[in-house]
Structures are given as structure tokens and as C-alpha cells.
Amino acid sequence: MRALVTVGSTGFDDLIRSVIDGKVLSTLYELGYDHLTIQYGSSKAIYNDRLERISTTSNRTPVIEGYNYKPDLKCDMVESDLIISHAGSGSILESLRLHKQLIVVVNEKLLDNHQDELACALENKGYLLRSTCRQLSDVLNALKNKYFIPFPEQDTSIFASFLNNEMGFK
């Protein structure tokens, strides 16, 4: 099985640091993920640094490949079974609509925590699992017995019918 980590168009050092970590990688391997793709954005330095350290310690880890950004990130999302994503709403919506297992990692360093509000709200509805960088390996362990409620399909007719009503079209 394949897992994908995505940090979005900027960087997220703490997420890269906690994903490329002995404990998290072995948990992923035990769960059956033998391939890990990491979209690291501007966190390239951390990515390279962590990768060097990890390669010497253990071989019971998934195969790791990484890139900074791809316009067709969606292809990689489609191919993977688990997505570990930053808390941006676009990325979350896209993953949920593909009906993937989703762990959203919130960035606690961001001052405006409305991203966390979204992650919490969606977790409460059972669509995804929310995690902080430190809790990641615990949340991965919880993945085994987790049932994800399927996210409703996109319905663009709601807004159209609302607007038709407002503008006097029937």
C-alpha cells in the first residue's frame, strides 16, 4: 500500500521532521505501507537532513521518495491509500472527495488557528483523523480500527438554485 504526505504550496518543517522518524516509519511499515511519497514543498533541507539520518538506522521502513511540488499532485493522491496532509481546506476537500483515509496534521505554530477549527469539525463528524506533529505515531496506531464516514459528494447545484431563487429565475 502507498502513503502520501503533502505539505501544500509552502513548507511545513515540523511535519516532515515527525514523518521521517524511526517510530512513525516503522508504524507505517507495520500497517502495510511499503511506499511513502513525500511532497515537501519548501522544507527540502529538513527532508534531506532527516533522510540521511534514517537510512543508516533501520531497514524495516517504507521506500521513501520525495519532490517539492507537482501540478498533478492529484494523480499521486489517487494512487495512495493513506494521505497525511497539512490542514489546508483545499487539500482536505480533495482527499475527502477521493474517499481516502486521511490524517490531517495541524500546524500549531500558525497564529490564526482556523485551520485547526476545520480539522476538529471534520474529525468530530468522523470524516478524518486530526493530529499534531507530536501525536502522529499514536494517531497512526489508531488507524487500524478506525472507520471513516464517507464524505458527501460535491453538489454544485445548491448554490445555483439559491442564486436562481434570489435573482428571480425559476
Binding site: 489546508g88 481546506s89 476537500l93 482556523h114 485551520q115 477549527e117 476545520l118 476538529c120 469539525a121 448554490f159 439559491f162 442564486l163 434570489e166 435573482m167
Partner: peptide, 28 residues
């Protein structure tokens, strides 16, 4: 001129700055 504003899906408990500013003036 009718103005319709749609707040982002990302906003659960608080509005964005633009949303807060436009809340009193937009029609919907």
C-alpha cells in the same frame, strides 16, 4: 448591484477578515 458573498469552507467558527468587513454590506 446585488452582491453575494460566500465564505470559505475553511471557516467553521470565525469569519475571514474580508468576511467580517463585508458582512454588513452584502445582500446575501
Amino acid at each position: 448591484i446585488r452582491i453575494v458573498y460566500v465564505e470559505s469552507f475553511a471557516r467553521v467558527k470565525s469569519l475571514s477578515v474580508t468576511g467580517r468587513l463585508l458582512y454588513p454590506v452584502v445582500d446575501n
